[in-house]
């Protein structure tokens, strides 16, 4: 990390990069703060940890045409960058990717819920987090499901922070496969229980690097895809269509779920998409920056057995 910081400082000083986007500790230890700087002296402040919550690619749009920006990205976030590159939204040469060894990302809201007290300190100990030096919480339980079904990326980083990837155990989508076995009414019951909490605050949309539309479908009056209101049907309509828009683009980074103040398990849906695409099409979103977007190509032999 120190080597990297040195390098970043040099790059800033020599003007090879315009700025650095990363995380610095905040007053809430469970949630590091996003921080951008063009000042070489600030580089030392950056930190890399489980408590880096959002996906930094989302912020790249704010730095459009600014010049080359360096940013810290986990593998899933690098994939998100790849998607944006293949969609022509970001040019690879405009970013300086700092590869981050991944340990997963904690959902601060979930952690708060688990702890049910003001959090003053956090400390990672093996597979647990020690909160306020008192309460021990399993990391697994405060991370979105997506962190357990992480997919690899064809590495294309400009610099890499040393360290071992310590992602949580790879579950091969077992939760998805188990969920598939439920009856429709059981499934609906689950979604009713978890999604009824949705207040349509759209935090999930705001943090999503893929949601860069100027006018979201959900805000459109003509066509009126989803009606306003907090009925479960309209909530589900929103999430279904949003997820459809994620198909082949979402890299399952889990940022949406971490952003959800209601702790709705959104990554169950995104993981399901990842699972289906991998299983039935061998497709992993954002595997590299040259892969065609999933819905923008086809093969004659594509899965078609669901069509009579």
């Amino acid at each position: 990390m120190e080597k990297v910081k040195e390098e970043l400082k040099r790059l800033l000083q020599e003007g090879e990069i315009k700025g650095v986007l990363g995380f610095v500790p905040s007053s809430s230890p469970q949630k590091n703060r996003v921080f951008y700087t063009e000042n070489p002296d600030d580089v030392s402040r950056f930190t890399v940890s489980l408590f880096n919550t959002p996906n930094l690619t989302t912020y790249l749009f704010r730095f459009k045409d600014k010049g080359k920006i360096a940013l810290f990205l986990r593998p899933c976030e690098q994939r998100a960058l790849n998607v944006l590159i293949s969609e022509g939204k970001i040019k690879r040469e405009d970013v300086f990717v700092i590869g981050v060894p991944c340990q997963g990302a904690v959902d601060p809201f979930r952690l708060e819920e688990q702890v049910d007290a003001e959090i003053n300190s956090v400390e990672v100990k093996d597979d647990k987090i020690l909160v306020n030096n008192a309460i021990s919480v399993y990391i697994k339980e405060v991370m979105p499901y997506s962190c357990r079904v992480c997919e690899d990326v064809e590495e294309d980083v400009d610099i890499k922070i040393d360290g071992e990837d310590k992602r949580p155990s790879h579950e091969e989508y077992s939760k998805i496969e188990d969920f598939d076995k439920k009856t429709p009414s059981e499934k609906w019951a689950f979604f009713k229980e978890t999604f009824e909490r949705c207040t349509r605050c759209y935090a999930c949309r705001e943090v999503c690097p893929m949601c860069y539309c100027e006018q979201c479908f959900v805000d459109s009056y003509d066509p009126l895809w989803v009606e306003p209101g907090l009925s479960l049907q309209d909530i589900m309509s929103y999430h279904l269509i949003k997820m459809y828009h994620m198909a082949g683009r979402c890299t399952n980074c889990g940022a949406c779920e971490r952003a959800c103040p209601e702790n709705i398990p959104l990554s169950l849906l995104t993981s399901m998409l990842a699972h289906r695409l991998k299983r039935d099409f061998g497709y992993i979103s954002g595997k590299n920056g040259t892969q065609k977007v999933f819905l923008g190509e086809y093969h004659y032999e594509d899965k078609g057995d669901f069509i009579k």
């Binding site: 059981e186 019951a189 589900m236 997820m243 459809y244 399901m272 819905l295 899965k303």
Partner: peptide, 28 residues
């Protein structure tokens, strides 16, 4: 061909959230 991919995704989503698969049919 493009439709086939799109329908597949939507069908999977719809079934996943517990809407009965019987409600949705595709054919050629």
């Amino acid at each position: 061909y493009f439709a086939r991919r799109r329908f597949y995704i939507m069908k999977e989503l719809i079934e996943f959230v517990g809407i009965e698969p019987e409600r949705l049919t595709f054919s050629w």
